[in-house]
């Protein structure tokens, strides 16, 4: 996390194993954050989209409902500098949870 300050923020969406996952996350941000989908670009920020902390809470509730992952407000999400990082941290948390769930039966 501390490395981020020396590396510039990404300007492209993260490449996910399941490309549809990116679309699902963006849909949730648009729906729960009440933002026009076309404005959700990798370089947009929470501030430029007018998203406040309570909007992020709503988005994360949508993530839990639709993707089945609990993501705290804190941790990596809190240091996301733009939507590319914000989406990447949601996708990463989702992948981690899916992995943990998959391992559980063992």
């Amino acid at each position: 996390m501390t490395e981020q300050s020396t590396v510039s923020a990404p300007t492209e969406w993260p490449v996910l194993d399941d490309p549809q996952q990116l679309e699902r996350i963006i849909d949730i941000i648009a729906e729960e954050g009440k933002v026009e989908r076309s404005k959700i670009t990798p370089e947009a920020t929470l501030e430029t989209l007018g998203l406040e902390s309570m909007d992020v809470v709503m988005i994360l509730m949508g993530v839990e409902d639709k993707l089945g992952t609990y993501i705290p407000m804190d941790a990596e999400l809190a240091s996301a500098r733009n939507l590319a990082e914000f989406v990447a941290s949601i996708a990463k948390a989702g992948a981690g949870a899916a992995g943990a769930a998959a391992e559980k039966p063992e």
């Binding site: 992020v56 809470v57 994360l60 509730m61 609990y70 993501i71 705290p72 407000m73 804190d74």
Partner: peptide, 9 residues
Amino acid sequence: WEFLRVLSP
């Protein structure tokens, strides 16, 4: 509290 997303898992 989970809704507020402030709980650590």
